[in-house]
């Protein structure tokens, strides 16, 4: 097991290297740079800026300098947020994103699996249709619609919740962004669970277990669930990586100080280092979560063993 984990982590290094290299050059294909503002800067001032940030160097040299810094753990300065380094920006925001995303993941997972289980056990009955229509709506209505609607109802009309901003991070402050972030994922989990559960319930070993007269709780909870969890666990990796690294949409609608916005903003403002920083961050999350999921897979499915 340990060798498997180490081997996987080892193979992540060339992956990260390729990702960083690609994004470094792709970013610079877009016209303009971080200092091309709506109002142009006088050439002399542009020169000072370019010199300060090393843009006067040839591209290959900029790349080598950047890679050298990254290897030492330095993601460079932000070209837009001039008081801050990329590590500083991402470091301050990541805590908020992880807390919000973690809560959303929990809500989505628990709520989605429960809803999916109920729907599967009541297959083709009213409750099933109700849950599945809800899940379809959850997937199709984008959160930039759900978010403002929730705010209109619960913050403006009822004054129960906060309309935006982190506040003190209390339930009242975070409930709406968590719901907006969780709903689409909750719907996915519900659909996955329902499908997997229906398939598992019709498997031979379940029929045998039932024929033996095992109690329903044991049949569903122990035997069927174990098999049905596999697709859910597979989806957990990209879902967790996505939720924990923040969502630009939800963070913008609810003014959450997380890291999700930096990718979009960074790309639009040509804040190269910030974009690369977020790319590295997301890549690390995806790699780590895929690894975790593979480990869990091994524990759940005897056919998969990492020895």
């Amino acid at each position: 097991m340990l060798t498997f984990v180490l081997r996987r982590l080892g193979s992540a290094i060339p992956t990260l290297f390729i990702i960083v290299t690609l994004s470094f050059f792709l970013m610079r294909l877009a016209p303009g740079g971080p200092f091309n503002l709506e109002r142009p800067l006088p050439p002399q001032i542009m020169e000072n800026l370019n010199r300060t940030y090393g843009f006067d160097q040839p591209m290959w040299r900029q790349y080598l300098i950047y890679m050298g810094n990254v290897v030492q753990g330095d993601l460079g300065p932000s070209y837009i947020y001039r008081d801050r380094s990329v590590a500083n920006l991402l470091g301050e925001g990541l805590g908020y994103s992880i807390k919000l995303g973690g809560l959303a993941l929990l809500v989505a997972l628990v709520g989605g699996v429960l809803a999916g289980l109920l729907a599967a056990l009541r297959q083709n009955r009213p409750l099933d249709f109700l849950i599945m229509s809800g899940a379809t709506a959850g997937v199709t209505i984008p959160n930039f619609v759900i978010g403002p609607v929730l705010v209109l109802i619960f913050s403006i009309t009822l004054s129960w919740t906060r309309a935006g901003g982190w506040g003190t991070g209390s339930f009242r402050d975070l409930v709406l962004p968590v719901i907006a972030l969780a709903l689409p994922q909750l719907a996915v989990f519900a659909r996955l669970t329902r499908g997997a559960m229906i398939e598992a319930m019709s498997a031979d070993h379940i029929r045998t277990a039932r024929a033996y007269g095992l109690p329903a709780r044991s049949v569903v909870g122990t035997h069927a669930m174990r098999g049905a969890m596999l697709p859910i666990v597979s989806y957990l990796a990209p879902c967790a990586a996505g939720l924990l690294t923040g969502s630009a949409v939800v963070e913008t609608i609810f003014a959450i100080p997380g890291v999700g916005r930096y990718f979009v903003h960074g790309a639009l403002a040509r804040d190269y280092t910030v974009v690369m920083g977020t790319v590295v961050l997301v890549a690390v999350f995806v790699i780590v979560f895929n690894l975790i999921v593979d480990v869990i897979y091994g524990l759940l499915d005897p056919r998969v063993r990492h020895d």
Binding site: P148, V151, L152, S155, I156, S159, R162, A163, G164, G165, T252, I253, F254, A255
Partner: peptide, 8 residues
């Protein structure tokens, strides 16, 4: 979002 927070 600013308008919503103002109205709230």
């Amino acid at each position: 979002a600013a308008v919503r927070r103002f109205e709230a």
